[in-house]
Structures are given as structure tokens and as C-alpha cells.
Amino acid sequence: MQPKPLNVLCLVSIGAHPTSGRARRAEQDARAVELGLRLAGEQVQVLHAGNAEEEALRAYLGMGLSELSVLQQPDGADALPVLFDYLKDSGAQLVLTGSQAETGEGSGMLPYLLAEQLGWPLVVGLAEVEKVENGVAQVLQALPRGQRRRLQVRLPFLASVDNAAPVARQSAFGPARRGTLWTDEVHVLDDDLLSNASFQPARPRPKRLKVIKAKTGAERMKAATAKAAGGGGQVLKDVSAQEGAEAIFKLLLEEGVIR
């Protein structure tokens, strides 16, 4: 017997093209929809909190969705509470989202905060759902350098996808034009944090200097393919929470993350 398809819900946002800045479907969110379509077919639900008038939303419909729900709210409103309200009664078993929005605050915090409020587990960097049995999903989590970690997660859970997830299918004009955008009026909550904060242009994250010590091609190859091993790290086992926290605090001080 074919198991009942998973009740999958994808959270999508409006993206911005990296060179032109033009509105588009967000790369990672589109990958989340792709994953959702592969898991649940056309039963997948797609949800956006924001402006339903935004044409770029239709690019998600163009992937073959018949409808997309929008929790109507103005720019700058806090998406978190309305998404929480929607999700807690939605019956969704798996909620997929991109790791970080391309527009707006783009803090990448939403999956964490949402999972915390819902009390659901969060899988970061979901690459594949292998199987779902007895309310437990076996999934692959993407780690750096193409590594995968197999996890067992109980349903319902929330997962964020990054570029390790399958590439989003092409968005076609016909389904994009035909699809329906359902609008839900929701209680608008201002995002205090956002309205009080001031924006400043992002600075590229400083990169560690890469000192090439290799003398031969083989050594360079080894250096290029080796894991990013700091070398100075230490493995703490069977230590108390106090000792662990102190070790972490010490490292953060050393690295200059906190002063």
C-alpha cells in the first residue's frame, strides 16, 4: 500500500537577484519548494507572509503549484507570529524553508525562532528525506564538503534547506499565470526590532589568511582537499556543563568573537 503522502508545507519569501537586485523567487526557498514537490507532489502547500501583489510570487506557482497562500501583511511587519499562528493548527508534518531570506532582514533566524515557538525539532541543511515510517523521518543533513549525516527526526519537524538541496525546477509561464494566490488577512504586528534598528551596508566577512606551505603539487592537492581542520581544537568528553561552557567561552575570547 502506498503510504499517505507527507503533509508538507513550504515557507517562501521574495528573493532578489544577486547582480540586478530585481525581485525573483528566492533561490533557497525555491529549493525548499522543489523538495516539497518531490515529497508530496502537488499536495504540497506553499505559504508566504507578505504582500500578495508581488509578481515574483508567481514564479513559485510556475513550478507547477495550483495555489499559494499569502498571509497579507505590509513590508517590515513581523512574519514570525503570523506564521506561528498559521502553522500550529495547520496539521503540517514537515515545514520546509530556505536558510536565509534574500531581502528584508535576512537574519536567517526565522527557522530557529519558529521551531522554538512551535516546540518542533529543526534540521538545518536538509538535503534529502529518505523515508518516513511510524511518525519518524529518516533524513540526510548536508555538511560541508559534500558530507551527509543521517538523522532520525520525529514528525512534525521544521527543516531549512541550503544549496545542498536539489536545484529548483524551471518556473513556467503558463502555470504561473493560472495559479491562484489565496490571501489571508492576518493581524499585523509591527516588528519592533526591525523598526528600531538601523541598517548599515554589509561588510564582506573577513577570510582567514591562507598560508600555503606546500612545496609540491601533491601537498597542495592534499591541502586543498583536506578537511578544514583547525588543528588547535580539542575534543571534550564527559565534562560537566560548567566546564564545557568555560571551554567554549575561552575559545570565543581567543578567537576575538567576544571581547
Binding site: T19, S20, R22, G64, S171, A172, F173
Partner: peptide, 29 residues
Amino acid sequence: TLEKGATPNKGAEVLDNLIATDNPGGFNP
């Protein structure tokens, strides 16, 4: 292309670029 979204190989990428940057290479306009 318009109904199935099945432009092969680099087709989809080129079309996305044209939509987002008005040039097929995705260069900054």
C-alpha cells in the same frame, strides 16, 4: 517552455537571467 518548464540544460538558467538581468549571461545590467 511555457507550460512544462522543460527547457533543457542551461535553458532555464538563461531564461531566468533574461528575466532578472535582461541579458542571458546574468551579468549586472
